[in-house]
Amino acid sequence: MTPDELNAARDRLLPDVVTGGLRVLFCGINPGLLSAATGHHFARPGNRFWPVLHLSGFTPRRLAPAEQEELLTYRLGITNVVARATARADELTAEEFREGGRILTAKVELLRPQWLAVVGVTAYRTAFGDRKAQIGPQDRTIGSTRIWALPNPSGLNAHWTAETMAQEYARLRAAAESAAGDGFPATS
């Protein structure tokens, strides 16, 4: 993909991968330019979302971004706090995050997933006005939907390795499994 093609994707909106009855709705910060250009969430090669999803046991194999619709068969989905594509998340304003939090709340009220998993605790803090939130389950709910803040899988998040991220994602998977009474597919 050329720099011009990537730049043309700036401000584009990326459709959600959602349906009713989701166990976990993963929520990114906002789409990057490659995601907006390809139409696939977490498309940047250095992003660890897809490997971590597999390592944590949510999917039986590592999916490619182009296979994102397959998540629905595992009752998983993807959305974003802010729909607008940018080269970097720091291009977003605090007001965009707060408005994104309002839109996300309405989306969750409509879809009613078991869990909302925000991948980026800073994005969660800003979108929901909870400056002290930490990684893990949150006290806040949206209706009956529980919320979990997860580490951001971006390659820029050097504080977390794929393995340590997978451990945290697996904690969410275990919580979702115990609440549902049935498991996600076993990893192979």
Rank of each mutant, 00 (worst) to 15 (best):
D90G: 05
T105K: 04
T38P: 06
L76A: 07
T59Q: 07
L53E: 08
P31V: 05
T126I: 15
A37F: 05
E109D: 11
V118T: 06
T38G: 09
E96C: 08
V17N: 04
R10P: 05
G39L: 10
A117P: 06
L55Q: 12
A87K: 08
L104S: 10
F97A: 07
P65H: 00
V82Y: 04
V81G: 00
G39Q: 10
H40S: 09
R12I: 02
Y124T: 11
R102S: 08
D16N: 15
T105S: 11
T126S: 13
P45E: 08
L22A: 12
T73Q: 14
A43I: 03
V119W: 01
V118R: 00
T86K: 11
N7R: 14
A94N: 03
E99R: 14
E99C: 10
T105L: 04
E70L: 13
P31G: 10
R102N: 04
A9G: 11
I29P: 04
R75F: 09
E99D: 14
V81R: 03
T126P: 02
G28W: 03
V24S: 10
L22T: 08
R48Y: 03
R48S: 09
R88Y: 11
G101A: 11
L13Y: 06
H40D: 11
N7C: 13
G28N: 05
D90F: 12
Q68N: 11
T38C: 06
E70M: 07
I29W: 02
T93M: 04
L63P: 00
L25F: 07
E95I: 09
I29C: 11
R44V: 13
T38Y: 07
W50I: 10
P60G: 12
A36H: 03
N30A: 13
G39E: 06
L14F: 07
L104F: 06
D11E: 15
S35W: 00
V17H: 04
L71K: 02
R125G: 11
T79C: 14
G46F: 04
Y74V: 01
A106E: 14
G100Q: 02
P60I: 10
F97C: 07
F97S: 00
V18T: 15
N47C: 12
R112C: 14
L116D: 05
G101N: 10
A83V: 09
L92P: 02
P31N: 06
A94C: 00
T122W: 02
A117Q: 06
P65V: 09
G57D: 05
R44D: 14
V18N: 09
G20F: 12
R62N: 13
L104E: 00
P31F: 05
L22I: 09
A106T: 12
G21E: 14
T126H: 06
A87F: 11
G32Q: 01
R102Y: 01
V24N: 10
